[in-house]
Amino acid sequence: MTDRPVLKIEGFSKHFNLHEQDKLIPSSHNVNLEVFSGRLTALVGPTGSGKSSVLNGIYRTYLPSSGRILYTTTKGHMIDLAQADEHQILELRRKEIGFVTQFLRFLPRKPTEDVVAEPLYQKGVSQTEGRKLARELLAALNVPEQLWSISPATFSGGEKQRVNLARGLISIPRLLLLDEPTASLDATTTDLVIGLIERLKDDGVAILAIFHHPELVKRIADDVVELSPPLIAANTDTELNP
């Protein structure tokens, strides 16, 4: 473990300004955290405290409302992801930052093994090699072999989640964001996933994760960051936009 965090978040906040309804919806509020290589930081807090918004903010699926998201690249450059140019973000997504969301988003009409291998294809890996690795990972996650060659569109929740995980883990990112990766899995499969996450930690991956179950946090987290409960929505304008 190095002293310098891979990711350091300072004063991150996110709120949504819904113009049509003329409403300001608060989400994350003044979040501060660090994530280190080879360690897992768990985000905990009540529903609505904006845990997912932190992950989405880092990945820039959400535009952060305020704060700094300082990421140190492989080359040692520090980038504020909250301000970074879109091309830079796309490049980091391709090469360094992985995100396993709660719900699988996939290209329709593609076989599962290609959905999983997608991050490798984007790095220029051949289809033969990509599929080989995808199959290994799908097998490791107990996804039945007869499903590998068909689209995940008709899969069950647990199967989709495992496909999603396999895709997130296949390219061994430098920073991995996990949003409830075991939410719809049984105990056996959860153990498999925990094993894979442990392996990534050994490989030096920095992980920021949200887990549904407190006992999982105990089992696998090296650091825990607790988010404060949500602010009351009414009359928060001044507080949110100082």
Binding site: F16, N17, L18, H19, E20, N56, R60, T61, Y62, L63, E86, I89, L90
Partner: peptide
């Protein structure tokens, strides 16, 4: 203008919000 997933998940402009909705 933005990353496509951001435009779809967190649109900023009133018109884009209406479009996505």
């Amino acid at each position: 203008t933005g990353l496509t997933d951001q435009i779809l998940e967190d649109p900023q402009h009133a018109y884009t919000q209406r479009l996505v909705a």
